[in-house]
Simulated scan of single mutants.
Amino acid sequence: MATTVEATSREQANAETGPTPWYRDRNRLALAGGIALLLIALLAWFIQASNRRKEEFAQRSLTQARSAAEAGNLPLASSELQKLIQTYEGTDAASEAVITLNQVRMVNGQSELAAVGLRAFLADNPEEKYRAPASGLLGAALENAGRYGEAGEAFTNASKTAGLEYLRARYLVDAGRSYRAAGKPAEATAAYRSVVQNFPKTASFTEAQVRLAELTGGRM
């Protein structure tokens, strides 16, 4: 009986003094945490490097497509731009390619198709730096298609998102022209007056003054 008790006591003592489970070992936990952080850092670096290479390839494709357009080979340029947009979706080059593609379409007399493409691009909420040029080009496409009221709205939106005063003023003058063509003198007057009141130092000021005077009988 005594022997059994002694054996049991020794087993309990050995169990109490045995190796510490890994999840209670602070050194091991610290090592595991360090390895996890290293893996996360490596993954982040890999993603950044991959995105950088993707952007570089996309920019090369964009340059080639633009060169084709400048050389007058619009069908090739259009094909290359569409391929770029699909292959490198999410890159800056792909966003620039959308705008360039729709410029090519307008040169080809496909203003309605350009308007559809630009509306879809804007509906996807692109980065702010692309909203003004896309909206301005949409206005031009709609104006070419004879949809003057919609063109005026697009130019107005372009002015709201443009970052430079001279662009904001230019888009408002474009909006005023489209609204006049649409038979909307009130909207045209508001666009021209906004230029006169808010952007007097821009090159568009004089034109806005003249157009506003035409609409209001000389009243500013």
Rank of each mutant, 00 (worst) to 15 (best):
T91C: 04
L212D: 01
L43A: 14
L113R: 15
A114P: 10
A65E: 05
A69N: 09
A30S: 12
Q12L: 15
Q59N: 13
W22F: 12
A94D: 05
R10G: 01
R24C: 10
A213S: 15
K201H: 11
E56A: 10
Q48S: 14
L39E: 04
G176K: 05
Y179I: 01
Y148E: 08
A134H: 00
Q12I: 15
L122I: 09
T91L: 03
S61R: 02
P200W: 14
E150R: 05
L215T: 02
V173A: 03
T202P: 07
K201W: 09
A77T: 05
L113E: 15
P200K: 11
A162V: 03
A44L: 13
A115L: 07
S9P: 00
Q110P: 05
A188D: 08
T8G: 07
R180V: 08
K129V: 14
F205Q: 03
V173L: 03
A191L: 01
W45M: 12
R24P: 06
F205D: 03
A140D: 13
A123F: 07
L113H: 08
R170A: 14
Q197N: 14
N198G: 10
R105A: 10
T216L: 00
Q82D: 13
G217N: 13
A188C: 11
A208W: 01
A190H: 07
Y23G: 00
S79N: 09
F155V: 01
A32I: 15
A13V: 07
D174I: 00
R53Q: 12
V5C: 06
G72I: 08
E89V: 04
A182R: 02
G33C: 08
N125A: 10
E70F: 11
R52N: 08
S204G: 02
T156K: 03
S111W: 02
